[in-house]
Deep mutational scan, measured.
Amino acid sequence: AQASVVANQLIPINTYLTLVMMRSEVVTPVGIPAEDIPRLVSMQVNRAVPLGTTLMPDMVKGYA
């Protein structure tokens, strides 16, 4: 199964992502692939992302 990117903490709206904020986990539904974690660093979330939430492409500015 493919691992997705999951929030490792509460990520406030407009926060620039860093490695410590994200982890990879096999979840349903599938979100942003874990292999894209390096690409996500320094990208901004466009909403608050609670701890344990799967990151979806529409949550990250400029990802989709």
Rank of each mutant, 00 (worst) to 15 (best):
V20I: 11
L55Q: 00
V20G: 15
A3H: 10
K61L: 10
K61G: 08
T18R: 05
S4T: 05
Q2C: 05
N8H: 11
V45K: 00
S42C: 06
R39I: 13
I37A: 11
P57V: 06
N8Y: 09
R47G: 06
A34I: 06
S42V: 07
A34P: 09
Y63F: 10
V45D: 00
G31W: 02
M59N: 06
Q44M: 14
Y16E: 09
Q44F: 07
P29K: 05
M21H: 15
G31T: 02
M56C: 04
Q44A: 11
L19W: 14
A48V: 11
T18F: 04
T28K: 03
R47E: 12
L40Y: 02
Y63M: 04
K61C: 14
P57M: 10
M56L: 06
Q9K: 09
T53R: 12
I37T: 07
P50G: 07
G52Y: 12
V49I: 15
L19G: 06
A48K: 11
G62W: 09
R47F: 08
N14D: 13
P38C: 05
G62E: 13
T18S: 15
M43N: 06
V20N: 15
A7E: 01
D58K: 05
P50I: 07
Q2L: 10
R39M: 10
E25F: 04
D36H: 10
Q2P: 15
I13Y: 12
L17D: 00
S4Q: 02
P29G: 04
Y16F: 12
V20T: 14
K61S: 15
I37G: 05
L40I: 12
E25K: 04
L51S: 11
D36W: 12
L19D: 03
L40K: 00
P38E: 12
M56H: 14
V49W: 02
I37P: 01
L40H: 00
T53G: 11
A1R: 02
V41T: 12
A48R: 08
V30L: 11
G52T: 03
A34R: 04
T28A: 07
G52M: 08
Y63C: 03
A7F: 01
V5C: 04
G52K: 06
V26R: 03
P33C: 04
D58S: 10
P38N: 15
Q2T: 09
M43Q: 12
M56G: 06
S24G: 13
P33G: 08
R39E: 04
T54K: 04
R47Q: 08
V26K: 03
L17A: 00
A7G: 05
I37W: 02
I11N: 00
V27W: 03
M21Y: 14
R47K: 15
K61P: 14
M59W: 13
